[in-house]
Simulated assay, not measured.
Amino acid sequence: MSTQHTDQRPGIELRMSPRDLINIGIFGALYIVTVFAINMLGFLNPAVMLIALAASIVAAGVPFMLFLTRVQHAGMVTVFAIVTAGLLTLTGHPAIGFVITVLCALVAEIVLWFGRYRSRRAGVVAYAVYSMWYVGPMLPIFYDREGYFSSESMQQMGADYLEQMDRLLSPAVLIGFTVSTVIFGLLGGLLGVRLLRKHFEKAGLA
């Protein structure tokens, strides 16, 4: 994806190929590993959890932006979202998170379409939009706080952890986190673009 010399890219494909599915699998795995590896720090305490979430949004921008260099038509980001969100749902994330992720992917697809799947600026914005899926797993706190903290996956965190988390995640903090996902998404997209230019393009990977 590039805002310059766009004629160097092949034309936009209309159908998903086996190669597209392979790219979705490879970069989806890299994305999930990045997110999980950093968010594991959140087990220390809820405050670290929020910091880890922000850090993972930024770091995951690298595999996502690299993935976008392989995206040439609509549908790939949505399938990417279905695969990654499906894995997160299987690990205990609320089902509403899956729905939010797919919706974010659809909006990201629109942004990429306006950039004709070649604009890196559009790619950065698309990643910021896609990163709003992070709000999905916490959304039940707004409408079913008691049910969220009493769920089986949350109970495994321990009583002390849940008590700290309940105190920390006030409505104001959750709203602030929602806004911050876009900001950190932009930072992650810009980081991905910078590394694409500095390393991956020289290595012939982007």
Score class of each variant (00 low, 15 high):
Met1Leu: 14
Ser2Cys: 11
Ser2Gly: 14
Thr3Met: 14
His5Thr: 14
His5Glu: 15
Thr6Cys: 12
Asp7Ser: 11
Arg9Gln: 13
Gly11Thr: 13
Gly11Phe: 08
Ile12Ser: 12
Ile12Glu: 14
Glu13Pro: 08
Leu14Val: 15
Leu14Met: 15
Ser17Arg: 12
Ser17Asp: 13
Arg19Asn: 15
Arg19Tyr: 14
Asp20Gln: 09
Asp20Pro: 09
Leu21Phe: 12
Asn23Leu: 10
Gly25Lys: 07
Phe27Gly: 05
Ala29Trp: 06
Val35Asn: 04
Ala37Ile: 10
Ile38Thr: 11
Asn39Arg: 08
Gly42Thr: 07
Gly42Ser: 07
Phe43Asn: 15
Leu44Pro: 11
Ala47Phe: 13
Val48Trp: 05
Leu50Ile: 15
Ala52Asp: 12
Ala52Lys: 06
Leu53Ala: 11
Ala54Met: 10
Ile57Glu: 04
Val58Trp: 02
Ala59Gln: 10
Ala60Val: 08
Gly61Met: 04
Phe67Gln: 01
Leu68Arg: 05
Thr69Lys: 07
Thr69Arg: 03
Arg70Lys: 11
Ala74Tyr: 07
Met76Cys: 05
Phe80Val: 06
Ala81Gly: 03
Ile82Ser: 02
Val83Thr: 07
Thr84Ile: 05
Thr84Val: 09
Ala85Met: 11
Leu87Asp: 04
Leu87Met: 14
Leu88Ser: 06
Leu90Met: 10
Pro94Met: 02
Ala95His: 04
Ala95Phe: 11
Phe98Gly: 01
Ile100Trp: 00
Val102Glu: 03
Val102Pro: 04
Leu103Ala: 09
Leu106Trp: 01
Val107Glu: 02
Glu109Gly: 02
Glu109Ser: 01
Ile110Arg: 09
Val111Thr: 07
Val111Ala: 07
Leu112Ala: 07
Leu112Lys: 01
Phe114Gln: 04
Gly115Asn: 01
Tyr117Pro: 03
Arg118Cys: 07
Arg120Trp: 08
Arg121Gln: 12
Ala122Arg: 00
Gly123Leu: 01
Ala126Asp: 03
Val129Phe: 02
Tyr134Val: 12
Val135Lys: 01
Met138Phe: 12
Met138Ile: 15
Leu139Ser: 00
Leu139Pro: 03
Leu139Asp: 00
Glu146Thr: 14
Glu146Ile: 11
Gly147Asp: 08
Gly147Thr: 06
Gly147Trp: 03
Glu152Lys: 13
Ser153Arg: 14
Ser153Cys: 14
Ser153Tyr: 13
Ser153Asn: 15
Met154Val: 15
Gln156Ile: 12
Ala159His: 13
Glu163Cys: 12
Gln164Trp: 03
Met165Ile: 08
Asp166Gln: 14
Asp166Ile: 12
Arg167Pro: 13
Pro171Trp: 00
Val173His: 04
Ile175Trp: 10
Thr178Arg: 04
Val179Asp: 11
Ser180Asn: 05
Ser180Ile: 09
Ser180Phe: 05
Ser180Glu: 05
Thr181Tyr: 02
Ile183Tyr: 03
Gly185Phe: 01
Leu186Glu: 05
Gly188Asp: 01
Leu190Gln: 06
Leu190Phe: 10
Val193Glu: 06
Val193Ala: 07
Leu196Glu: 05
Lys198Trp: 12
Phe200Glu: 03
Phe200Asn: 03
Glu201Gly: 02
Lys202Phe: 02
Lys202Glu: 06
Ala203His: 08
Gly204Asp: 01
Leu205Pro: 06
Ala206Gln: 03
